[in-house]
Design a protein around this nucleic acid. Structure first.
Lengths: 122, 122
DNA sequence: TGGTAATTTGGCAAAAACGCCAAATAGAGT
DNA sequence: ACTCTATTTGGCGTTTTTGCCAAATTACCA
């Protein structure tokens, strides 16, 4: 792969990564891993302005993480690729490690939910 | 887990995610997955200002993705948690999907490198 | 057709991220 | 101590992201 192509790939990856790089958006992705939810549902769940939530969802849809379909009055969002969850849980390993080193900012005492499939971090 | 704790966890996750959400930083992480490299090595590899590269590396170190150790004159960085790679490759699934839908911005013809362990997307 | 609820869009001000320069720091060799 | 190389840090202008408001859009229902 050429240098230019490698850069391009990194840019694509960063684009997707960036869509996930926000507390509210990560939170919503996790909720959507369990079930389809409407914009209103998510707005209630995360406690932010509807328009803000809508824009966050657009970003996630834009990069292909979420898909939307209308159901009557509402728009239901759902997670396209469940592997995103493994993804997030891999991050948890890092957070956990950080916590052990006193580096992190996880709330002391907060338990990071266990996952079934563990991608071990050495 | 309380609402506040969930928010906190999402914030921690976003913090790590954000560190990865940059083309240059992702690129460097991938290089570092293969071998330890110095700031100078990476600067040459990515083609950016040294100070910029140094700051990018700091960010990755800050959140516990990289570790640094001095070797004589230089500072060698290396990847702490190899699962980051699975992580990145999961993103590739999304990019690939996007490409199929004509949504993405991957260079046409660019082959996304195959990985051994496939976390399938549905 | 008018009204209402759900969602998206445009706009804008505040905050954060970026990248380069110049200056400071740290180590190796002379 | 002096120099050279490697790296980090401070500063600063530019760009991007964020979040709220108000206005527009869409679908349902009377």
């Amino acid at each position: 792969m050429s240098f230019k192509q490698e850069k391009q790939l990194a840019a694509s990856r960063a684009r997707v990564m960036k869509a996930l790089a926000h507390p509210t958006r990560i939170f919503m992705v996790e909720l959507l891993a369990k079930e389809k939810l409407s914009v209103g549902d998510l707005t209630d769940a995360v406690g932010a302005d509807v328009s803000t939530v809508s824009k966050h969802l657009s970003q996630l849809k834009e990069v292909g993480i979420l898909i939307a379909h209308k159901e009557g009055n509402r728009v239901l969002y759902s997670l396209i690729c469940p592997c995103i969850l493994d993804f997030i849980h891999c991050i948890d390993d890092i957070i956990f490690q950080d916590a052990e080193k006193g580096l992190s900012c996880v709330l002391p005492g907060a338990k990071i939910p266990q996952r079934e499939i563990h991608i071990s971090c050495e």
